[in-house]
Computed example of a mutant assay.
Amino acid sequence: MAMLVSLLLILLITALGWWLAERTAWGRQLGTTMLVLLLGLLVSNLSGLKPQAEAAAWINGPLTSLAIALLLLAVDLRRVWPDARRLLVPFLMAVVCTVLAVLIGGWLLQPLLGPGRSVLAGMFAATFTGGSLNFVSVARALQPPEALLAVATTADYVVFAAWFAVSLALARRQGVRSAGVPASETAAPAERWLTPDGGWWQALLWGLAVLLLSNALTAALQRFWPVLPSILVLTTLTLLAAQLPAASSRRGCYGLGLLLIQPFFTVMGLSSPVGALLGEGLPVLFYAALIVALQGLGLLLLRRWRGWGLGETLVASQASIGGPSTALALATAIGRAELALPAVAIGLLGYLLGTYLGLLAAALLA
């Protein structure tokens, strides 16, 4: 009974966050993920309610694995590459800056971060090279203590929100304007990446098939390599499946995956005491802020050298820091409608990199 009540609380908070993101202007700016995390934080810190262990395990286990598979099934390189090329070089430089910042920051802050340094490096390298999907994937592989995971999740979103606000202020201060492409020409295609678009049942079949095959393949491979992270098998197999024919049957994968991954962030919000972030979690927050600050500074310096447009640079940075949906939100917010679809495309390419780079960073700082 306690598990059902806890699941109902998680689903109600998630549904409220989704409704606010759909129905309010400020909610659309924040996005569903940020809203469910904030709502979870409010409920937890004001009422003291926490998710029941079995309910949290079900959300963080099978449901999140399915969501990861669905999101990765959207990375059809034949579809995203033509649009992604426009932002490819700034985005790749953002990824390089992120990885360097993770390693430099981890080295400088070792006395403050203690034994959790390598795990934090892995999760932050992952999330800041493609967004929250990569954070979830690497956290599943590294299995940090619950308290550390909660603090890292909160720090991730606090820093991301701050950088989004700074990017918006920089763009508006410099008078970034659209290159003249009407919003209607790009908004609709971009939104189709982010909604189930009527193909949810086909998407669900794809996701379940990949997840079951991945579990079987992981069990077989772990007989020969017992420490093989299951998330590597899932991500690699899913990315290969995303290149198969019949792409139209997978058109609902991204939207459905984006919906199904939201309960994970609700659980993280419910498990994240703000007092811990501002107390013993302060070094974690400082580490996350240092990574994003170094990435942003490095990318802006490269922009001056290479002559990139400010709008392109900021959107590429946001695709790295926050992923495709937040890059789309920034492109729209700064009036660069023609960057909307490239922002989503380059953010999806970030899914190819984040898990592997996160695990590499964790290994280097172990």
Rank of each mutant, 00 (worst) to 15 (best):
M1C: 05
S6H: 08
L9N: 06
T14R: 00
T14E: 06
L16Y: 07
L20F: 08
G31T: 03
T33P: 01
G48Q: 04
P51Q: 10
E54K: 05
A55R: 01
A56Y: 13
I59G: 02
I59K: 01
N60I: 01
P62N: 02
T64M: 15
S65R: 13
A67D: 02
L70I: 09
L71I: 15
V75S: 05
D76P: 00
R79K: 05
W81I: 10
D83Y: 11
D83V: 00
A84Q: 10
R86C: 01
V96A: 15
T98R: 02
L100P: 01
G105V: 08
G105L: 09
G106V: 07
L108P: 02
V119P: 00
V138N: 11
V138F: 10
L142F: 08
T154K: 00
V158S: 07
V159M: 11
A161C: 12
A161I: 12
F164K: 06
A165L: 15
S184P: 00
T186F: 07
P189F: 07
P196E: 04
P196N: 07
G198I: 08
Q202H: 14
L204D: 05
G207F: 13
L213K: 02
A219Y: 04
A220V: 14
L221C: 03
F224M: 12
L228T: 11
I231A: 12
T235W: 03
A241Q: 06
R250A: 06
G255M: 00
G257F: 07
F264T: 14
L270T: 14
L277G: 14
L285H: 08
A289T: 10
L290Q: 01
L297R: 01
L301P: 05
R304P: 02
W305L: 15
G307R: 10
E312Y: 11
L330G: 09
L339C: 04
L339N: 04
A340H: 01
P342L: 13
V344K: 01
L349T: 09
G350K: 08
Y356C: 03
L360H: 04
A362Q: 09
A366S: 15
A366V: 01
